[in-house]
Amino acid sequence: MSAILEARHVTRRFTPRITLGDRIALLLGAKVDRRAVQAVTDVSIAVQQGETLGLVGESGCGKSTLGRMLAGILPPTEGDVRLSGAAPMRGKHKTTTRIQTVFQDPYASLNPRIRIGEAIAEGPVAHGLVTRAGAPAMVAEWLRRVGLDPGFATRFPHQFSGGQRQRVAIARALAMQPEVLVCDEPVASLDVSIQAQILNLFLDLRQDLGLTCLFISHDLSVVRHVSDRVAVMYLGRIVEMGEAARVYAAPRHPYTQGLLDSVPKLMLEGNEGISFRPIAGELPSPLSPPSGCAFHPRCPKATELCRRERPPLSPREDGTLVACHHA
C-alpha cells in the first residue's frame, strides 16, 4: 500500500476579519476580540491507495477543516498537502480533478437553477473528460449507476427528495473520475432508511470503481461500517488512529473510550441498566484550548503530567497511534 494523499504537519488558523463595526469600536478605544481560532493543529495523516479512512469527532474538532485541506479546497496555514506524483497543493485554488468531494447538504451544493444533467456534465466537459456531444450518454450512465432514472436529467434539484439529491451529488463527484473521494457527513441529514440506501450505494460504487475515500462523520456507527482505518479528532488534533476494527474493539485513548461509551446502544433486553456512559464536562472553546493534553479537564485518568505536557501521537505495538500519557 502506498499513500495516495498525504497531509504533513498541517495547521489551519482562522483569523477574524476586521469589520467596519470593529474599526469604529477600535477608534472609540474599545477592545475587539481578534484571537485566531486554530481549527487544526499540526496534523499529519495519509490516505492509502484503495482504503477508506474514517474521520470522527464532535462538532468543532476540526474534522471538516482537515477534510477540506485534504480535498485541496482550503489551503493550510502551515504544512502541506500532497497528492501522490504531484507537487504539494498550495494557493487558494484547487488545481486537481483527482479529488472530488460530496458534502452534507446536497441542496446547498447543487445550483437550484441548473438542471441536474447539466450539473453532472459541467465538470467533465470543462476538463475534456467527455465531449459535449457525448455528455448526455455519460449523464444517463451515471444516473443509472446511482440508482436514478436516466430521464431525470432534465429535472431541477428541488424536484428531488433529500436521498435522491445526495445520489445526484455522488454522481456529479464521480463523473469527474476522481482517484480520491472526500465525503463530508454525506448521510447526516438523511432518514435512517434512506441513509441505509446511500451507504449501500457508497459500498457498491467504492468496490466497482476501486475508490480511495476519506469519510468524515460524527456518527460512530456509520464510520465503523464503511472504514478500514479510522482517525479520532479532538480539538484540532488526532488523538487516536488505527485499524477500525481494533480502535472500536479496544479503544486506547480515554476520549475514544468515552465517545464510544456515550453512544446509546440498541437495548434489546430491557433498559433498566443504562446503555451508555456520558463523558463529563463540555467541549472546551478552541479559542482558549486547555494546557497540556486538551482532553485533561474531562479525562478520568488525567494527572499533573497531562496538565503540563501535551502527549505526542505515538505508535503502539499493534500499530495504533495514540496521543496519551496513560494509554
Partner: peptide
Amino acid sequence: SLPAMARPGEKLNQ
C-alpha cells in the same frame, strides 16, 4: 437499516 445491526462493510438490509 442501522449500521450497528450489520457487520462492518456488509450491505445493509435497506
